[in-house]
Amino acid sequence: MGLDFTVVPAFFDKLLLGSLWTVAITLSAAVLSFFGGIFLAVIALYAPAIIRWPFKAFSWLFMGTPLLLQLFLIYFGLIEIGVDLPAFVAGVIGLGLHYAVYNSDIIQAGIQAVDKGQYEGARTLGLSQFQTIRKIIVPQAVRSVIPPIGNNMIALLKDSALVSVIGVTELTLTSQLAISKTFRPFEFYIAAAVCYYVINLALEAILRRIERNIQAAR
């Protein structure tokens, strides 16, 4: 039996809806991973040891274990201790925290690359250490590491397929459901791949735009 892509258009609206869920989960997790990354980076570089070490342990945990396992833990595991999260929320938290740890490493490098004179310039005006970090150091650090963070966001988009296993009907799960009805795996996996690719192109275009906008202010 040959390939027959004519089965795909009938599921067009379902694939579109799945794509929208993929976009929603990616954007939500991206926002969480971005601000979580800044938070973890500032803790890692400036907090006293007693605060720093628990967060370091947390980071190692998230970096050293599979994302799939983390999703299982958050969605199925937490129920045992009475935390029953909707699948979408569990997916966003899992993806977001996982990538926050990766973003944190990049942002730490960005913070350390900010010229020491910036810190001194702000402190001599009378700004406190925290005000200096918030208004001077972090904004410059983040601007300098937008390209590698953008790469992480593209990886995050692709890893969002993993949340299909906890039952979020995003793009991958949608195509699997279509396959179970039509027995046409090749056609629907290709269709899903095309959708991911298009979303990726859009994401890259947005990232390029952000990079261009911050060029002037560096």
Binding site: D115, G117, G121, R218
Partner: peptide
């Protein structure tokens, strides 16, 4: 300062 230390993002 010798090297101004202006904030480049502002």
């Amino acid at each position: 300062f010798q090297h101004f230390n202006l904030f480049p993002h502002l």
